[in-house]
Write a protein that binds this DNA or RNA. Structure first.
Lengths: 348, 348
DNA sequence: CGTCGTGCAGCAAGCGCTTTCTATCCAGGG
DNA sequence: CCCTGGATAGAAAGCGCTTGCTGCACGACG
């Protein structure tokens, strides 16, 4: 029924071994023979059996990209960049690889299961993007998995995710702490003293680091911390909307709101507007990430730009062994403060 | 080095066959035996060799999801919904499948290559999302590929993509024509007579259908068509920005701009604002898709909501054989007109 | 003119798993 | 007490491909 290597060999009047070598091109084959084989492949419309060759060669051309939320452009942009470098089809010539993105939905179990699935497929490389969940048992499980993957020859790269100690994994981390600190410092410099903070989900590294940066800036300015001014939520618009209402209820005198990311900030803007407050006249708002839509918000969003595409591309290249990993296997990628219309001097 | 089925068998003191059966759970195995095997699996930290089992069983648990642009939430949302149904890890219990999304970047070649790669992996199912490129040779190539995939037992589902005749593929198409028509009709009803249209890339089915709907509404209202009022671009913000400037140059008296999608509409809004025109006071703007950020635009965007998540979920279920395909293998999914702040009565 | 090196092609042994067919065991039934 | 059959477990034959090694020309060299 299905065409196999042997069929091609028969048609080209050569041995299966020769066909295999023509297809893999890593062994001398006479030009005339090669041509004959190629013609046969074409005529029979032959497609290599992936599992069979992966089994025989003990390697596969699968590369996994794990993301927390594929519907979020933050991950989409990184995934897109990573994948462009992996080659996927159409990358640079040679070794066609199947770059696949796996959506964990932020769930530790799914993350682990995907890792197992990729291990099962003997993936050539795996790139994990975005923040990690901080629960100790989960972290340990992931570490163990990553170690095992490395041992099996799978290259592991972390992109926008903190390093995994005791692991061979290369890490490209975002300087969330520094970015957040600069952002809040900017607000403080403008004169703000009562700032609300809308954090992401607890137990996420990204959430913690950004919050720490925010608090560091506060502390540096001698502003005492008020636990009531921090609300945890998710990394989406809705969360920003609700959290803002809550913050306003707790303290109507807030003059600025710092959001965990741009989507959250957009939700915050919506809530403020509906509450009859102007931005930045009554309340300044700041986001994080600088996703494409942020510049289109009205007023446009002050935020911290993360070089998502660049970092992704680099991670992809490292995963393919086309770029030297950073010294020590760890590199920190800085964000850039983008001051725009949504932040201003506080009223009165 | 690596643990194999045989190792597990040895440790559990059973035959490899039994281990396989325990793992696949489709053959009676005594409870005590099962337990012993499972313990051995655990102790040895055994991970099934995917390629090997795919080869032996002649099926794999890979499911491919093709998208045009993974950084675009339009696709992200669909992909996410599809994948949630595929199961991926964490779906419903049983057969864990590796749902992978492949980013074609809108390129026909990459689409084809990915299809081949998936065929090579003997994928269990493939879901193609979004519009197709209309070039005849490409369409023929895709059709041939899809047919071959079906023959090989891969289930093929099209989501938000026109049907592929002469193919077994199930199609869930969006009624782009109808939605676009309703949208433009709404504008006409408001009193607009001079409307600009920013289309997507030419040669895309989605582009053509939306444009056809727009023109149908125009024709129905007896408004003569002016080719100069249509500009082609890409499906992104930038394109909307530039196209708007171009439209304004060609005819400063436009009272409305209909965009190919929401991102384009956002770009249009930015261009209008910078040109000193108010929305919808001077010019009304409408988008398409109703992506999450559209409601946050200021003013919020009038658009056509496409049930991306619902359609994706359904496509996913059909791909898994968990839902009956629609009669005839084709279903049309309607959009819903969302009238919001960005459209209004044209100025005097 | 014999021999060795080189360049290509083929042989055959797996890769690790699934699955058909067969063997075994034990409970009942005749 | 022997036979039948249901319930489990095992033996072994591949699945389609890769690759180390062998085989065989042919030209060059001594």
């Amino acid at each position: 029924m299905t065409v196999t290597l042997a069929d091609v060999a028969a048609r080209a009047q050569v041995s299966p071994a020769t066909v295999s070598r023509v297809l893999n091109g890593n062994y001398p084959v006479a030009a005339s023979t090669r041509e004959r084989v190629l013609r046969a492949v074409d005529e029979l419309d032959y497609v290599l059996n992936g599992p069979a060759s992966a089994l025989a060669a003990a390697t596969s051309d699968l590369v996994g990209i794990l993301v927390n939320d594929i519907a979020d452009p933050f991950f989409g942009i990184m995934a897109s960049a990573i994948q462009a470098e992996i080659g996927g089809p159409g990358g640079r010539a040679g070794g066609e690889r199947l770059a696949v993105v796996c959506n964990t939905g932020g769930s530790p179990e799914r993350e682990l299961t995907y890792l197992t699935l990729l291990q099962r497929q003997r993936a050539a490389a795996v790139v994990l993007t975005g923040g990690a969940v901080e629960s100790a048992p989960h972290a340990a499980a992931v570490t163990a998995k990553l170690r095992k993957l490395s041992e099996a020859g799978t290259r592991v790269v972390l992109c926008g995710r903190p390093p995994a100690p005791d692991t061979q994994a290369i890490a490209l981390t975002f300087d969330n702490r520094g970015g957040a600190r600069a952002l809040t410092a900017h607000l403080i410099g403008l004169g703000h003293r009562r700032l609300g903070y809308i954090a992401g989900p607890e137990e996420r590294t990204t959430t913690r680091h950004r919050l720490e940066g925010h608090r560091a800036a506060l502390a540096a300015a001698g502003i005492e911390e008020d636990a009531g001014r921090t609300v945890y939520g998710r990394y989406d618009r809705r969360s920003g909307y609700e959290a803002t209402l809550e913050l306003l209820r707790r303290d109507p005198s807030l003059t600025a709101i710092v959001a965990a990311n741009d989507s959250v900030a957009l939700g915050a803007c919506a809530a403020l507007r509906e509450s009859g407050l102007s931005i930045p006249g009554d309340v300044s708002v700041a986001g994080f990430d600088d996703l494409p839509f942020s510049i289109d918000a009205v007023p446009s969003l002050t935020t911290v730009r993360l070089p998502l595409a660049e970092a992704g591309a680099r991670a992809g290249r490292i995963a393919m062994g086309r770029e030297e990993p950073p010294p020590g296997g760890i590199a920190s990628v800085r964000g850039e403060l983008m001051v725009r219309g949504s932040t201003g001097v506080p009223r009165g």
